[in-house]
Design a protein around this nucleic acid. Sequence first.
DNA 1: CGAGAGCCAT
Length: 515
Amino acid sequence: MPNRDVVSWNAIVAAYWQNGNLEESKRIFNSMPVRNIVSWNSMIAGCVEHDRIEEACEYFLRMPERNVASWNVMISGFLKYERLEEASKLFNEMPVKNVISYTSMVDGYANKGEIERARSIFDKMPNKNEVSWVVMINGYVENGIFEEARRLFYQMPRKNTVAMTTMLTAYAKEGKMDFARSLFEEIQFKDRISWNAIIGGYTHNGQCEEALKLYNKMLEAGKRPDHSTLVVVLTACSNIVSLQQGRQIHVLIVKSGFQSEVSVCNTLITMYTKCGSIDDSELLFREMVNPDVVSWNSIIAGLGQHGHYVRALEFFEVMKTSELQPDEITFLNVFSACGHVGRVEQSLDLLESMVRIYGVEPKAEHYSCLVDILSRAGRLDDAYKLITKMPFAPDGAVWGALLGACRVHLNLELGELAATKIFELEPQNSAAYVMLSNIYATMGMWKEVNRIRWLMKENGVKKQPGYSWMEIDKKVQLFLGGDVSHPEIGRIRLELKRICLLMKMVDRDEDLELL
DNA sequence: CGAGAGCCAT
């Protein structure tokens, strides 16, 4: 039975590359006495899996005959690396297409933002299955076109758990958690991913208590958490600054062996940072055997958020000696630290070395940071020069950084210029009006102050009130900036005074590091 | 024995 034989060989070939040993797969493949189409297809899939698309091509061209799966595996290989042209060439050349060929192309176009082309293939499909529908719906969701996603979802004939989870995620991204929740309740066979989606939805929409409640329900329902579950519930704990619940989940992570998951550790680092326990963040980071860029970014950001700027910069120096490449977020965190300790020259050097050494293109946010650093150092003209030298059009945030400093250093000319730019780019940006008006007020130019006030009214700009809240006798009290009519105003003021005093005391202790 | 889907961290 030679056929039976091939099947066993194929299984061994597949098993090796699935366990990370592509070379052994290839060796066995070469030594096989007989091969069928499946042997070749499996070898191609293995190469694709191990980022060796060119080798996959070689096998594809060498094989004596191909079936539809051979073409499909090549197409999905090219799509994996966003090589749309080659994928679509194969798609057009292949003699017979099946539902998988079409679905792969729909997914490929949708992932590249070419949603119209994805849709036109979807509409041309001779028959669709549940996967095709989900790919198309999710394509709309990923591209933020929620109305069309919803329309297709309701057209979809048989909605399975995956489709419902996709739509649930769409509602969550729109902030419509009530719709997301009722869809979730309608899912007959809720799996772990559906639970993760609804918990994540509540977390990202600021309803973290509800997220944690659902997490407990999930455990009660007998679903074990996976690394994604843990990531979102830890995020929920961070957002509500619940160190106690965060630690509880940390214990569970250690007991269940999830501490080997990099994403889980990274989230733990951030959780401890946000919950005020930066030492735990650092301990965790040091214990990681395989930190990635996100781990480094998290600890550098964390140290910065706790005022340990110099230490953050030291970590960055160590990161540079590792084999990991800093990314755009690393540089944002590093710029932030530089700015706080007034390292102007260093940040200018860094901006230059971003591209030259690390191949990271600075974005608008990076320029905003630099403009902010230069401006705060009083170098307003240099900041303006940097803006004019930016390789793309400056956005409102860049001008805002300059305007903010113009208010502090009282530079009327540049301030008016920056404000004018912001009014063009973001006419509803109330902060710009307020800052410009403050410059005029400080300089006693009351006529101009009135002109800005009039301009705000004319453009329908509303300054959103500044507000905060605190807990008094187990009740949360909301209070507005400048509001003296609050019934608990006395105790609120007392508490604010206490916090100010506390901050000044802490500040004195940590001044040393700033120098 | 081979090809297409939903959730997650800075």
